[in-house]
Design a protein around this nucleic acid. Structure first.
Lengths: 254, 254
DNA sequence: CGGTCTATTGAGCCAAATCAAGATGCGTGG
DNA sequence: CCACGCATCTTGATTTGGCTCAATAGACCG
């Protein structure tokens, strides 16, 4: 199981952090994603308090807005689009630790620096909070802290699941797990066989997420297609024909 | 990179949860590990409050005291010994997601059931709290919740590091990373070259932690020994001769 | 319609898994 | 004390799943 240098290096490194578009500070109360993420835990006056320290920003596709190892003095809340979180080795090998989208809170790292990087896959909208300004708000609103704790616990569970995948699953099982995850994100646990799911990440992203190479991901998807388990459209839309079969494969019972 | 069925199955499944020794409820104020873990965040009256809901238990080596998927109605705080946390696939493949020892808090899972299992490696002492009794205490003491959040964030960082290891590192880099981790747990970041570090886990545990097989772990350790980077004594004690070389290997610069 | 990414497919290779002996250590009981 | 049984660890021989290298095929875009 040699490291896949090329898959990581071949990915063109997106340009560095440049100034992202700022949309001014809208009131959170009328935020279109108020029902999602940490904001859903707050009432109107609390949201008002939060709005005072929030700045909405727009990040273009491919831009890194959290640099690994940089000083961690900002938090983010994703309001639209998809973000990839990653860690890298000095020689460029890269592991994507998660894809996150609307409602997700970023920057929980307690240390002085970010332990991971974050890059926009498609166009991403964020609420940005400076740490120094958010901290007192968190202290004021215990429910917010409780919400963060519960979010952290959920992420921990997901991380453990991913460790099982990376340490013990075959390529086929990994790809099936990934598709399964897409399905669940879209439809919860109701299978919805045959519906089209579109995803923004490239094969290289999927490979770096699953600890594989681009070629293996591509080959494995082709295999599943040939077996009639899935259909692929435009490369970035799939339809899962037999969710239960896929689920069995993902758990190693395929 | 086929799954290592044997390494997981060969490991004899320890007996099921039987009644563990109970030591009665000592006051936390005089607890020998008061300075560690969540308790260190509390003052005397708060500890007194905590003591009311805590039960000290002793777990013999090899016993599973958290069953994957079981109802999660208890929390634990490790006061001595070493615990392995793991997730398994239906066919027995196993991934150890972490080794935890004194001061560590277990059971953060927000869901109804535990997402992972926990097994004592050597003799383990725990403080056990029932969820229903601990919840109000957490609500009363915001500092406790903050402490839990910070612990969760730290675990998340460790989990991301482990995903990088499992997804992108070679066997040699994984073993070096593991040894590096042992060294850091023992001495922080001051290298202490040549000192003996003893660890309780077997080669099978290490393999299940690093996503390798027993044979590969053994061979790799032999390799590092042959190269004069480490010395091994009794199989469960090592001395790291050149910490900086090891660290370089762990980061993929070896 | 050429240029540049991104994805697919094929051929060959290699790191780690699997299979197979031994070696070492350790508790138990004669 | 040693002999036995059992588990753990090490080492060797062989196999293989996924990586690497290489070439082609789409997709997108100015």
């Amino acid at each position: 199981m040699p490291p896949s240098l090329t898959s990581a290096i071949a990915t063109p490194r997106p340009r560095r952090l440049v100034v992202a578009g700022t949309e001014g500070c809208a009131t959170c109360a009328i935020c279109e994603v108020r029902a999602n993420g940490i904001c859903s835990a707050l009432n109107d006056p609390e949201l008002e308090r939060l709005a005072q320290v929030a700045v909405k920003v727009v990040i273009p596709p491919g831009q890194i807005f959290i640099e690994e190892g940089a000083r961690a003095d900002e938090f983010f809340n994703v309001t639209s689009g998809t973000v990839k979180l990653f860690k890298s080795l000095p020689d460029g090998r890269r592991q994507i630790t998660g894809f996150v989208s609307v409602g997700h809170f970023l920057g929980l790292a307690v240390s002085k620096t970010y332990a991971f990087g974050a890059e926009a896959i498609d166009q991403v909208r964020l609420c940005r909070f400076s740490r120094t300004r958010l901290d007192p708000v968190i202290n004021e609103i215990p429910r917010l802290e409780r919400r963060l704790l519960s979010e952290a616990a959920n992420e921990l569970v997901a991380a453990q699941e991913q460790m099982l995948l990376l340490g013990r699953k075959t390529a086929r099982e990994r790809v099936a797990s990934f598709l399964q995850e897409l399905l669940e994100k879209e439809y919860g646990d109701s299978p919805a066989p045959g519906a089209w799911i579109s995803f923004p990440m490239t094969r290289a992203d999927i490979a770096d997420y699953l600890g594989l190479t681009v070629e293996t991901v591509s080959r494995t998807l082709s295999g599943l297609r040939r077996e009639g388990l899935i259909t692929v459209r435009n490369g970035h839309e799939i339809s899962i024909i037999t969710p239960s079969r896929l689920h069995a494969i993902a758990r190693g019972e395929g």
